[in-house]
């Protein structure tokens, strides 16, 4: 039954989600970019690739880095003015937001420097792999801090284990497709097993994410706040978001799989389209997540 409370709740939810579009973009792209970088770093460190293909992949690492940077830049929209950019870091250690920003900046910085060094004419046979490991590790930290930034005790709808799990799974979904897209962009014939593994990771993460998001919504139906008897009523469209997001994500995976099956590798076009679809799917669910914002007082 639609009550006044429901209308006010839904309006509040959508309004909050719209206000946080930049953060929705950040939490879509930054963790996906980091995850993709980690996967590609593993590939570069352990797979047998010829020098030319390795060099070209080194250059194309700019793709996941750029995706992560777009999100990081978008997230600063709510800072307001340049002076606030550094002041946001003064809370490192005690503020989840500061930790999240610092981790993102450190990852972006390490990955950026590593990418620039990929163009050096000097081989740097020890330093480049070392920096790659450091950048990948900082990517792991970035995903951890980004996903745990929303475990805020006063926000009852977010202070659930599902929040962090969903974020990590979204990173896995987006990162796998982004990694596949990056490999496709190089136009080199990369390891078919690795590309299959990327698709498998995306598929597994997608299934797990749908389950986790559904469980989260069921849990929220049992939670209440100061004004709402059921916290879930603030975003009754969340199940639709789960369904639409899941469908688009699966479409992305199917497209990628078909390309792999037909051409023995992911083509550039299917890589781009799959990646765009997957990131779009993640954005939809992130939008729904921000619409769920409910403090103990509301």
């Amino acid at each position: 039954m639609i009550t006044l409370d429901t209308i006010i709740g839904v309006g509040s939810g959508i309004s909050h989600a719209l206000d946080q579009l930049s953060l929705a973009l950040f939490t879509t792209t930054a963790p996906s970019g980091s995850f993709a970088f980690i996967l590609l770093a593993i590939y570069l460190l352990f797979a047998k690739i010829d020098d030319q293909a390795r060099r070209r992949l080194d250059h194309y690492l700019v793709i996941p880095i750029a995706v992560a940077l777009v999100g990081l830049i978008a997230s600063t929209n709510h800072l307001g003015k340049p002076a606030n950019s550094l002041y946001v870091l003064t809370g490192v250690g005690r503020s989840p937001l500061s930790n999240e920003v610092l981790a993102s900046v450190v990852f972006a910085g390490c990955a950026w420097i590593r990418w620039l060094l990929g163009y050096s004419s000097r081989p740097m046979k020890r330093f480049k792999p070392l920096l790659l490991v450091v950048a990948a590790f900082s990517g792991v930290i970035q995903i951890w801090f980004t996903s745990s930034a929303y475990s805020i005790p006063t926000v009852v709808s977010w202070n659930l284990a599902f929040t962090q799990v969903n974020q990590v799974l979204a990173a896995a979904m987006g990162g796998s497709m982004l990694a596949a897209c990056t490999l496709a962009a190089t136009k080199d014939a990369h390891s078919r097993s690795f590309e299959k593994a990327l698709v498998a990771i995306a598929a597994a993460a997608c299934v797990a994410a749908i389950v986790s998001q559904s469980l989260q919504y069921i849990k929220m139906e049992t939670l209440s706040s100061g004004l709402l008897s059921s916290v879930a009523s603030i975003a009754p469209f969340y199940p639709i978001c789960i369904a639409v997001s899941g469908a688009i994500a699966f479409g992305s995976i199917v497209l990628c799989s078909l390309s792999l099956r037909k051409n023995d590798l992911v083509t550039r076009r299917s890589g781009i389209v799959s990646c765009a679809l997957m990131l779009g799917a993640i954005f939809i669910i992130r939008f729904g997540f921000y619409a769920l914002y409910t403090t103990a007082g509301i």
Binding site: I73, A74, T76, N77, L79, S85, Y119
Partner: peptide, 19 residues
């Protein structure tokens, strides 16, 4: 966003231009 515009030049654009 204006908050980071001033940082983009030395951190992103100058290294990229140099490359």
């Amino acid at each position: 966003p204006i908050a980071v515009r001033v940082y983009l030049v030395p951190l992103i654009m100058v290294p990229l231009c140099g490359l």
